[in-house]
Amino acid sequence: MARKVTGAKTAIWTAAAWLVGFIIFFPILWMMLTSFKTELDAFSTPPSFLFFHWTTENYATVQERSDYTLHAMNSIITAGGSTLIAMAIAIPAAWAMAFAPTKRTKDILLWMLSTKMMPAVGVLVPIYLIYRDFGLLDTRIGLIVVLCLGNLPIVIWMLFTYFKEIPKDILEAARMDGATITKELLFVLTPMALPGIASTLLLNVILAWNEAFWTLNLSTSAAAPLTTFIASYSSPEGLFWAKLSAASTLAIAPILILGWFSQKQLVRGLTFGAVK
């Protein structure tokens, strides 16, 4: 910082920023606190902030219900599976477009982006009918397919913006030294591309984990991931706040942690490289 900053000003700005951050984060914090309350305390007025009877019984109850584990597994398998398949399709495509661009590359990229713009409701009817006729409703494989294709454009775009930044000279140099395409891939490109691949992977697991249009419409029980499972708490209105909070905390905790790691890449991924 070249400019002079007085201590008092810094203190005021710091306090203001922390206050704003705290307010934005508060609903999550409140949910986490509620998850450690008894159902009675969860309802109490005035609400108790810290001095209540802390209990982990909600977590035990949620875990005991065998279906929670099932839905968590469904989330892991559908989010993970769809991301891995998308990566397998996207890495070669992004690599080719970044390193052997043709006149058409830009058009292809923009066309891919435009498929992401299509609102899901526009194709809800046909997808639903196709899934019904092929017995894909409420199956993990059905969710994996739809999540994979839905996120594929973002995966390709993110990878492309990363690959594009790898200096091409290094390839020339490797080729001069007599490296084959395979060696080039394995020893030159892969190490340089790994950070980009890792952050793309992370962001897309997050997006797939939280996707709540297709999962709500195409899954009901057997394949229902956590998004659908949590939605089932909306029906017995306001009865089990502490358990809802415990289930919710479990559902968002892993992704919140992953998300905090990937936040720097988030901007880039979600703006398709328009803001870095």
Binding site: I24, I28, N210, I230, Y233, I255
Partner: peptide
Amino acid sequence: VIAPFFVMPTVSALV
């Protein structure tokens, strides 16, 4: 500040 973005929509709505 970034945290709410990672919360799945069904959770934020119900909370």
